[in-house]
């Protein structure tokens, strides 16, 4: 079957998608909580104030969460999903924990989806934890041109991790396509 086409989230997605607590996968300030944050920038390096970022991640033990509760958080259950709209400066942030390895030897990452007014379909990428030692062993990091690899790897700051997303331009983020995205389903 042919998949329905995507369409842009447009300028008014704030009405339907972001929700209170969406960016707090764990309460800010709790022991072990980090901030994952960054800016979404266009091809001129200008902030995108109407973008939305979703993250989906394993817990610190590398376990994939199979529990509901992302939309109405109880403050205790880690669901692994978060959603944040960018502010006027193109800045987004999450309060979360660092994901663990889901498979031995594979560097952990946040799965990231990017939406924006002006972006006709969602984009997928990954934000890897900073650990340059394991880059070459990872199928994705090993396949990406070394000059672009850094776009997939978060950097550390005092509160946690920084991950900027460049939709276009010399520092364009590496965006992903998965096997079932390609071709047509008869």
């Amino acid at each position: 079957m042919s998949a329905a086409p995507g369409q842009t989230v447009g300028p008014f997605f704030h009405l339907g998608l972001p929700y209170e607590g969406g960016n707090d996968l764990v309460p800010p300030g709790r022991a072990g909580a980090i901030r994952l944050h960054g800016r979404v920038l266009d091809g001129d390096g200008v902030a995108v104030p109407d973008a939305m970022i979703e993250i989906w991640q394993a817990d610190p033990d590398g376990k994939v969460c199979r529990v509901p509760g992302s939309l109405r958080r109880d403050g205790w259950t880690f669901t692994g999903f978060g959603r944040a709209a960018t502010d006027a400066d193109g800045h987004y942030w999450f309060s979360t924990v660092e994901p663990g390895e889901t498979q031995p030897g594979r560097p952990p990452f946040f799965a990231v989806t990017v939406f924006a007014r002006g972006l006709l379909d969602r984009l997928f990428t990954r934000a890897y934890l900073p650990d340059p030692d394991v880059y070459g062993a990872d199928p994705l990091l090993g396949a990406v041109a070394p000059a672009r690899r850094h776009t997939l790897v978060a950097t550390r700051d005092e509160q946690g991790l920084v991950f900027d997303i460049h939709l276009q331009g010399p520092r364009e983020t590496v965006f992903l396509s998965f096997p079932k995205h390609r071709g047509v389903w008869a």
Binding site: G43, A58, Q168, T173, F175
Partner: peptide, 20 residues
């Protein structure tokens, strides 16, 4: 609005793993 907001480089093919 798409002019400065679309990637110009090809999407990178990858097999999903873990949470994906």
């Amino acid at each position: 609005s798409s002019i400065l907001r679309h990637p110009t480089k090809a999407l990178q093919p990858v097999d999903p793993e873990g949470v994906e």
